[in-house]
Amino acid sequence: MALSQKQISGIKAVIFLLALLPFFRLVAFAFLDKLGANPVEFITRNTGDWTLYFLCIALAVTPVRRLLNVPWLLKLRRMLGLYGFFYASLHFLTFLWFDHFFDVQEMWKDVLKRPFITVGFIAFVGLLPLALTSTNGMIKRLGGKRWQLLHKLVYVIVPFGVLHYYWMKSGKHDLTQPLMFAALVGTLLLARVWWHWSATARNQASA
């Protein structure tokens, strides 16, 4: 299916707005006093969930594009990944602001002492270079190959994010959701391994 540039821009605009809905929902809930008994917990969990949703959707672009043969999906990937970063930033800001009131020293103590926060923090820091190099100019400056290599970091970052969620829930023995994420991310990453192997096998056979 081939789409015109105009159609793709339209789709991008619609998804751009849809992806903001969770954020505006939180803002509206905050003003309407609908964040429940523990607003900080609500915001923390909600922004954490949406981070993982968007990173999974961004990781799904390539497999879906190949399976269903819809090449233009690639044009949405950068935006989806950046939304993952946007919600991760809100998640981190909630932690820094409402949990620690910008007491960076206290925050560091938490980050270093508690493994689930450590891995979450690493994942967030890992997203920073990807977000910073997401512009066309940066792609040019780095060169396509190096840029691609750098952005493969996401294959490590997302599992760290899932581990963060898993450890957060593990003491409460409530692992259904983290395990669902783990299965999904595992499938999306294994699909890449599989394609890589079969491509190498094909190359060797033809050589």
């Binding site: 008994a37 523990n38 607003p39 938490d110 002492k113 508690r114 689930f116 926060i117 957060m168």
Partner: peptide, 22 residues
């Protein structure tokens, strides 16, 4: 005595210590 995953030194009073309260 901290919980391994969070500090027990402070607490948030539900309904009073809202978003912007320490």
């Amino acid at each position: 005595v901290d919980h391994p995953r969070w500090s027990q030194a402070t607490e948030r009073r539900i309904g009073e210590d809202g978003l912007f309260a320490r």
